[in-house]
Amino acid sequence: VTTYKLVINGKTLKGETTTKAVDAETSEKAFKQYANDNGVDGVWTYDDATKTFTVTEMV
């Protein structure tokens, strides 16, 4: 189990959250659901070296 981080650069929501998951794909699903639940829709990137997802909304 690995800890993954999500950085949110939204128009109205900014911040970070973490989750523990067995792999990046599992954490990505959880993070995308979290973003969707909070009305964040944007461009996703992933940095495997830091286990960090970033979602950026276009303004």
Results as ranks from 00 to 15, higher is better:
Tyr34Met: 05
Val40Pro: 01
Val55Cys: 06
Trp44Gln: 00
Asn36Gly: 08
Glu25Val: 12
Asp37Met: 11
Tyr4Arg: 02
Thr56Cys: 06
Gly39Lys: 07
Val43Ala: 07
Asp48His: 10
Lys5Thr: 14
Met58Thr: 13
Gly42Gln: 01
Lys32Gln: 07
Thr45Phe: 08
Thr18Cys: 14
Val59Trp: 13
Thr2Pro: 06
Glu16Tyr: 14
Thr3Gln: 10
Asp41Ala: 11
Val43Glu: 10
Val7Gln: 05
Met58Asn: 11
Leu13Pro: 04
Lys11Met: 12
Lys5Asn: 05
Asn38Ala: 12
Val43Phe: 10
Ile8Asn: 00
Gly39Ala: 06
Lys29Asp: 04
Gln33Leu: 10
Thr52Tyr: 01
Lys11Ile: 14
Val7Ile: 14
Gly42Phe: 03
Asp41Ile: 14
Glu25Cys: 13
Glu28Val: 07
Asp48Lys: 09
Val40Trp: 08
Thr17Leu: 15
Ala49Leu: 12
Met58Ile: 14
Asp41His: 14
Phe53Trp: 13
Val7Asn: 04
Val55Gly: 00
Thr3Leu: 13
Thr54Leu: 05
Glu57Arg: 03
Thr12Ala: 09
Leu6Glu: 02
Glu28Ala: 12
Met58Ser: 11
Ala35Leu: 10
Asp48Tyr: 07
Gly42Ser: 01
Gly39Thr: 03
Asp47Arg: 02
Asn38Cys: 13
Asp37Phe: 08
Phe53Asn: 00
Ala30Lys: 11
Phe31Pro: 00
Asn9Lys: 11
Thr56Leu: 05
Gly39His: 09
Thr17Phe: 15
Asp47Leu: 04
Val43Pro: 03
Met58Glu: 12
Asn38Lys: 13
Thr19Asn: 11
Gly39Asn: 10
Thr17Gln: 09
Val1Gly: 10
Val1Lys: 11
Lys32Gly: 02
Lys51His: 11
Trp44Ile: 02
Thr56Tyr: 08
Val22Leu: 12
Val43His: 09
Phe53Tyr: 07
Ala21Tyr: 05
Ala24Phe: 14
Lys32Arg: 15
Lys51Ser: 05
Phe31Leu: 04
Met58Ala: 11
Leu6Val: 03
Val7Asp: 02
Lys20Phe: 13
Phe31Trp: 02
Lys32Val: 06
Thr19Cys: 15
Thr17Arg: 13
Val59Gln: 12
Lys5Pro: 03
Asp37Pro: 02
Leu6Ile: 03
Ala24Arg: 15
Val40His: 04
Thr50Trp: 04
Ala49Pro: 06
Asp47Met: 03
Ala24Ile: 12
Lys5His: 12
